[in-house]
């Protein structure tokens, strides 16, 4: 089989090549597994969570974690002020964080890629209109923009996703616009134009596959950012409303019991840290793999 000459082997796509380089780093791979583990936990929450996350049991009010006096193994991380199992609420809370993070990035990347491709390739008034809108949206600090929108529309899953996506799309848009501007001058795009390819064909089939790497890297970095933003909104009481468990609101709930029940705030915060840190390490690994110049 090895007799097949190298030139005859189908070339691997640049994305696959880069992913192979990413997998070579043990730390990045471990963190990718951690992120994947969180996703699996979130999806399988009803099967994995030991208790109903909203089931209150006032006899277990502020029960400590299993390894402390008064704790029990069935309630590993202890209970909150309403006697709800913290571990189960963290597992269910992962659903909110990951779902909102993924939904915002999906919506924002789709819009950003479309707008960035159009602005960078078509230029002219399309570019001017999109770029001005991007400049205006960049004029708002992110959290303040989201808070203002939610203040007006009210909290709720859909409103949070929209409030975050309304501003998030400008980031992939700027990246894609810049990459497209550079790509449209390259020979392969000129060749496609000379062969009579339509603008839509060139943008989708020629340019997009070649600029996917930076889009993937930016999406992962931004996902970590969006998860912290969602948790911040929930902490302020502007996120998903009770009794639905979300990590940010769990931390807020525990604030009143800092003195004698540290576990109520500590564990959900730790969950945010582990997930966000893992995503950040993964994104750094992806950036290093996709852009060797960044390996410093």
């Amino acid at each position: 089989m090895s007799a097949v000459p190298a030139a005859a082997r189908p070339a691997r796509s640049p994305v696959l090549e880069n992913l192979a380089a990413f997998a070579a780093s043990k730390l990045s791979l471990t963190c990718a597994v951690l992120v994947l583990g969180c996703v699996v936990l979130a999806i399988a929450a009803p099967l994995v969570a030991p208790h109903d996350p909203n089931e209150a049991d006032l006899f277990r009010r502020l029960q400590p974690p299993a390894w402390m006096e008064g704790g029990e193994i069935a309630y590993l991380l202890g209970c909150d002020a309403l006697g709800r199992d913290i571990a189960s609420r963290i597992i269910y809370g992962a659903r909110i964080s990951i779902f909102i993070g993924a939904a915002v990035i999906l919506v924002a990347t789709t819009i950003g890629v479309l707008a960035g491709l159009a602005a960078g390739y078509l230029r002219g008034w399309v570019d001017v209109a999109i770029s001005r809108l991007v400049d205006i949206l960049l004029g708002f600090p992110y959290l303040i923009f989201a808070i203002a929108l939610i203040a007006m529309t009210g909290p709720g899953l859909q409103n949070i996703i929209l409030a975050l996506a309304y501003k998030e799309w400008v980031i992939p848009c700027r990246v894609v616009r810049g990459e497209t501007l550079a790509a449209r001058e390259l020979e392969y795009v000129e060749a496609a134009r000379a062969l009579g390819g339509s603008s839509r064909y060139i943008m989708w089939r020629e340019i997009l596959p070649n600029i996917l790497s930076p889009v993937i890297v930016v999406s992962t970095v931004r996902m970590a950012h969006v998860i912290i933003l969602e948790a911040s909104l929930s902490f302020l009481g502007l996120g998903v409303q009770p009794p639905t468990a979300s990590w940010g609101s769990m931390v807020a709930d525990g604030r009143a019991f800092m003195l004698d029940a540290w576990w109520v705030s500590t564990f959900p915060g730790l969950a945010i840290l582990v997930l966000v840190l893992s995503i950040n390490v993964v994104s750094q690994g992806l950036r290093d793999a996709f852009d060797p110049r960044m390996r410093r």
């Binding site: 902490f235 604030r255 800092m258 705030s265 959900p268 945010i272 840290l273 966000v276 840190l277 950040n280």
Partner: peptide, 18 residues
């Protein structure tokens, strides 16, 4: 610095307070 960008500010604040 990796921890710094990954720590949720509100949680870090509560830990410092505790």
């Amino acid at each position: 610095s990796l921890f710094g960008v990954s720590l949720p500010g509100f949680w870090f604040g509560i830990l410092l307070l505790m």
